[in-house]
Structures are given as structure tokens and as C-alpha cells.
Design a protein around this nucleic acid. Structure first.
Length: 580
RNA sequence: GUCUCAGUAGCUCAGGGGAUAGAGCAACAGCCUCCUAAGCUGUGGGUCGCAGGUUCGAUUCCUGCCUGGGACACCA
């Protein structure tokens, strides 16, 4: 180890940037180490930053924080550090305005990065952080007999992407579709069906018909509140195992699931479990009993609750009529999942609005003595609003996902007919692009704040969109087809367009890491936009095929971009057609 | 009322304490005899909600206020 005192020493230990055994680039850490060796002060990981502008170098160290300790001006400290840096991968280091700006040796680094990406292919950026630990992911969770809404889309695509990210980082993901198939609403639906519905209509268009019935029920119940009692009674009959009610419920459920399946097929999402609320209906008693035994249940206004202190309201476990609630079922489900899968992490991709609910469930589990409640994470997302307000199923204010998807696919089809009419498998590509547009418009922003529903924005194909990423990749493939096989290559010089692209390729593993840690697919989406923009800029400004001297190296660059873009899209649940 | 999330360009949004706050859309001006124009290049556009505080330095962290969304016991 080089002692760390080192403004005096002008010699820095040489160290390769590339860890062959890990297969991961750690450029930033290496630079930090180089700086640490010449810095008079212990550097934090944050110390090193990326300059805002390319002409200020590839990395920078602000020296203002050292001024007080060293009693020298930042400018002088920067000068001294800059003068001390010597490293085979650093071309130059200059002091500007109290910063040390570091310029890397482009050809050397480019060569190492490109060789790594081409060699590792789709596994570039993968890791074994997770050590095969199981992560359960609660996602999608639509309510049967109700349409698949835009809100469920968010949960489905965010959850699916998180599962893919987890797998890439070495976890085992278990995707659970916690179907909303139980509760008072089914009593209401049964009542409405018996009053106004026909078997034929339901067979023809199940969800549409059931939704119409559901809306009508709520309209009529406003005039005639006794309907609500009828609904509750019908649900009671269902709970008690009434054969007729049960048969209808099963039928509605099957029809709903087969409709949902069409959407899941389109989105390319599969589940490991469909255990919904009804599945837990007969499993809650032991949990309530356990709560009782642990003396956590308190009676309050006739109901059984768990008190959670001043800060948050108590968690309702049993209604005054003895019936259980949503929280009771979720508590049971959480324990069941722990027993079944022994997860190291349990993720719930559910809307913002349920934050309090999950806080309560976690705290109840914690009070029961289950330390693993700390491994439960609610991943919230904002509501999709219409006219500035929450969409309401009951009032029929809802946008159907399937219509949106169909429209996006039609648009993609029209674009292909216009721009690339000779393309072979047009239907397949239109589907990939249309679905990609919808997926990406949702995944690129993880902001928890609410989103105003805007079909026009979702169907956009230009700028920061899914089709833009797909198009960029298709272009890359097109050049590669014409350039022939990527063979051995030597990097002799690297221009600015290439360098910006290379630096982004280097950042991919960090993007994956951060997206995984923060459970945030938007990190990958934004990264993909950055990489596509850098590549398109290169593509628009550099002629590849006509320049034989640089062809093999540039082909390697283009192939690397394609590998990383394709992998980014895969992590978002998108398809990456090679032509479009 | 309490808790919580948010407020950045005309619109939609990025910005992990640092230099001149960035993209995309929209507007305007260029670029296809040339690797896919779903693209590239350029122009205009900002009191980063307001007021304090911490810091050498705050869009970023803290406090208060204003505005908006959501949640707040027998729905899920």
C-alpha cells in the first residue's frame, strides 16, 4: 500500500482499470484511489464528480473543502494535486478554478471497454449481489370484474421491470399477482347481475358488461340505499359457501382472468402465483388468534384493532360484525409468503394511496415479533389522473388499457407502412413498437407525483420514447449487417462523438446497480435515452461504412451499443426488433 | 385538522452538496444522388413556489409558509 501523505510523492502505483476476475468496470473508484494517493485528506466517495461540460474533462475533484484544513487556497491545492497525478490511463490533469479536471486516455479505455462488452454480451452489467436470495414481488393485482386500468398498468410494468432487475443482480424473483377477487363488491355485482344482467351479454364481453352492471348498481344505490344491504347479504352468502353465488363468482373470475391474460400476453408478463385475496379467505383465523395470544388486539368501538401509537391510526383487524378486512388478508398473505418463499426482500408495487396501509401492516408484523417485516418494501407510484382527479371505477371514469395498447399498435403499423413498407414481419414489429411506446412512457418517470392521463404523449414516437430507443437499435443492426462480422479490432483514435458513447457504455453496470438498489426502472429508461442520444449523434456525424481505416473498431462500438440498448430494453420489458 | 408526496422553460419531465440549471415536445431555421429522416445540427425560451437557516458553495439538506394530489378505522 502506498502511504497516503503524498503531495511529495510524484509516483503513483500502477493499477489496471479492468478487473478481469470481476468483469466489471470500476473506473470511478480507480480514479478516486489515484487521487487518494496524492490527496492530503481522506476522500469520500462523493468527492469525485462528473463535470458538467465535456471540455472540463472526464472527472473532476473540487478542492474547496480542503482549503480550511490545509490553510491554502483551493486553486493552489488543485494545482498541487494536478501536478502529482500520474497514471497510465490518465492523459492529463489540470487545475481550473479550484477544480482538478482529469482527462482520460481515450484509446486505452475505449479498447478495454469495448473488449469487455463484446466479450460479455448480454451479461455485461450482471452481478451476483443478490446471492440467489428470493425476492417476492407483489404486482399488477387487478380486481376481477373490473377493467384493467392504467393504474394497474403502472404496477404491472414497474413490477415486472423490478423483477428483471433483481434477476440481473443475482436475486431470484417471484412474481405474485395478488388478484382482487374477494370483498363486498362481489356481493354488489351478484345483486346487479341477478337484477339486470344476462348470461349472453357476459359471455360476449365479460368485463365490459360486468362494469356496466357495477356502475348501474352504484347509480341506483344512490336513490335506493337498500340495494347496499342486498349487496352485503349476497356477499355474506358467498362467504358462507352458497352454491349459486359461488358458481357465479367463479364464472366471473374465469372470464375476467382470460381477458387479463390477453393483456399480459401483449405486455409479455408472466406470474409465478395468482394467489389473490380469496385464497387467504380461510387462512386468516390463525393469524387473528396469534394477534390475540400476543395480546395485541384491542377493542375499539366494537371492532378489533392493533394500536400503533400516536403517530398513525390503529390497524383494523376485525369489523364489529366479526368480518375481516383488507389489512387482515395482507397480514396473512405476508406471513404466508415468508413461510412459502423465505424471501430476503418482499416488494409491493402498489399505488401511493396505500402507503398508510403498508406502514400499518409492517408495524403490526413488527409488533408480532417478526423482524423480517423490515424486509418489506412498499414501492409506491403516483396516480393517473383525469381532469386533475383520481379515476373512479364506480363512476365509470376510467381509461381502458387494452384500447390504448390497440391504438398504439395501429399507429406503429401505419408508421411502418409509410416508412418501411417492405419490412417482413410487420405485425410482430408493430406490436413490439406499439407496446414499447406505452411501456416506456410509463417507465421513464418514476416520480411519485400524479400523472395527468394523456394519450397523445403515450403514443409519441419521437424524442425520449420507446420507439426512439428501438429505432436506434434497429439502425445499429442495419450498419452491422453491412459492415460484416465484428472481428479483432484495434483502437487508434477516439473522436468526441465516440468518446461520449464510450463513457455511457462504461456507466451501464452502475445504472443497473442503482436501479436495483432504488427499485427504480426509470434509472434504466433514462440511461437508455442518454445512450441512444449519444449514439445517434455519432451516427449522424460520422460515416462508418466508407471509412475502412476505422471500420472494425467502429463496428465493435456499434455492436456494443446494440448489446447494451437491447439489454436495457429487456430490463424494461420491451422487445428490441432488429429492423423496423 | 393530522400525516404524506409533489411544485424547475409554454407543455411533459431530468437534475446522487459543486463550475455556465439540462432533455424531449411545441415554435423557428438548416440537413436525405450519402450507413433506416421514428434521425441529426442550430436558434429562441428560466425570480428552480415563497421566506429564512446550515455550508467556502443550496435546484439539491433543515425549518416555516403558500399551492396542488393522496391517505386518515369498520372499502380495497
Amino acid at each position: 500500500m502506498v502511504p497516503r501523505n503524498k503531495l511529495s510523492s510524484h509516483y503513483i502505483e500502477m493499477k489496471a482499470f479492468y478487473y478481469a476476475e470481476k468483469g466489471v468496470w470500476e473506473m470511478k473508484k480507480e480514479i478516486l484511489q489515484v487521487l487518494q494517493n496524492v490527496s492530503p485528506i481522506q476522500l469520500e466517495e462523493h468527492a469525485l464528480e462528473r463535470p458538467a461540460y465535456a471540455h472540463l474533462g472526464d472527472f473532476a475533484l473540487p478542492c474547496f473543502q480542503f482549503a480550511k484544513v490545509l490553510r491554502k487556497s483551493p486553486a493552489i491545492i488543485a494545482e498541487e494535486i494536478a501536478a502529482s497525478i500520474k497514471h497510465p490511463s490518465i492523459r492529463k490533469a489540470e487545475a481550473v478554478n479550484g477544480y482538478v479536471n482529469i482527462f482520460l486516455d481515450r484509446t486505452r479505455i475505449t479498447s478495454e471497454i469495448l473488449h469487455a462488452v463484446v466479450e460479455q454480451g448480454a451479461t455485461y452489467g450482471s452481478s451476483n449481489e443478490g446471492k440467489d436470495g428470493v425476492v417476492t414481488i407483489d404486482l399488477s393485482s387487478p380486481n376481477i370484474a373490473k377493467p384493467f386500468s392504467m393504474g394497474h398498468l403502472r404496477s404491472t410494468v414497474i413490477g415486472n421491470s423490478i423483477a428483471l432487475l433483481m434477476e440481473k443482480s443475482g436475486f431470484k424473483a417471484v412474481k405474485i399477482n395478488y388478484i382482487g377477487d374477494w370483498g363486498t363488491q362481489f356481493g354488489k355485482l351478484l345483486t346487479a347481475y341477478r337484477k339486470w344482467g344476462t348470461e349472453e351479454d357476459v359471455r360476449k364481453a365479460p368485463i365490459e358488461t360486468l362494469l356496466t352492471l357495477y356502475i348501474r348498481f352504484h347509480e341506483e344505490a344512490e336513490q335506493d340505499p337498500s340495494l347496499n344491504d342486498e349487496g352485503r347479504a349476497a356477499f355474506k352468502a358467498l362467504e358462507d359457501g352458497d352454491a349459486d353465488a359461488l358458481a357465479l363468482w367463479k364464472w366471473f373470475k374465469e372470464e375476467s382472468l382470460s381477458e387479463f391474460q390477453r393483456i399480459y400476453d401483449l405486455l409479455g408478463v408472466e406470474f409465478d402465483s395468482y394467489n389473490g385475496e380469496a385464497y387467504y379467505n380461510d387462512k386468516m383465523e390463525p393469524v387473528v388468534q396469534e394477534l390475540e395470544e400476543k395480546r395485541l388486539l384491542v377493542e375499539s368501538d366494537g371492532a378489533q384493532v392493533v394500536d400503533l401509537g400516536e403517530a398513525i391510526p390503529p390497524c383494523l383487524i376485525r369489523k364489529s360484525d366479526g368480518a375481516t378486512l383488507y389489512a387482515t388478508r395482507d397480514l396473512t398473505a405476508a406471513m404466508d409468503r415468508k413461510n412459502t418463499y423465505d424471501f430476503v426482500k418482499s416488494i409491493y408495487v402498489v399505488g401511493n394511496e396505500q402507503s398508510l396501509h403498508f406502514t400499518q401492516v409492517k408495524q403490526v408484523l413488527n409488533k408480532m415479533g417478526y423482524a423480517w417485516s423490515d424486509d418489506m418494501h412498499h414501492v409506491p407510484f403516483g396516480l393517473i389522473l383525469q381532469d386533475g382527479k383520481k379515476m373512479s371505477t364506480r363512476k365509470g371514469k376510467i381509461v381502458l388499457l387494452e384500447q390504448v395498447l390497440t391504438e398504439a399498435i395501429d399507429l406503429a403499423h401505419r408508421n411502418i407502412a409509410e416508412k418501411n413498407p417492405t419490412l417482413a414481419n410487420q405485425k410482430e414489429v408493430a406490436e413490439a413498437v406499439g407496446v414499447g411506446a406505452i411501456l416506456f412512457s410509463d417507465l421513464k418517470q418514476h416520480r411519485k407525483h400524479d400523472i395527468e392521463f394523456n394519450l397523445e404523449t403515450m403514443l409519441q414516437v419521437e424524442g425520449e420514447t420507446g420507439p426512439y430507443i428501438q429505432y436506434t437499435n434497429a439502425r445499429a443492426h442495419s450498419v452491422l449487417r453491412k459492415a460484416g462480422e465484428v472481428s479483432a479490432f484495434v483502437v487508434n483514435e477516439v473522436n468526441d462523438f465516440e468518446w461520449e458513447t464510450i463513457k455511457l457504455l462504461e456507466q451501464f453496470p452502475q445504472a443497473v446497480k442503482r436501479a436495483t438498489e432504488e427499485l427504480d426502472p426509470s434509472v434504466i429508461a433514462k440511461y437508455a435515452v442518454d445512450l441512444a442520444q449519444a449514439f445517434n449523434s455519432f451516427y449522424g456525424n460520422v460515416k462508418v461504412l466508407t471509412d475502412a481505416a476505422h471500420l472494425s473498431y467502429r463496428a465493435a462500438l456499434i455492436q456494443s451499443v446494440s448489446i447494451v440498448l437491447t439489454e436495457s430494453m429487456r430490463l424494461l420489458g420491451m422487445k428490441a426488433p432488429e429492423e423496423m
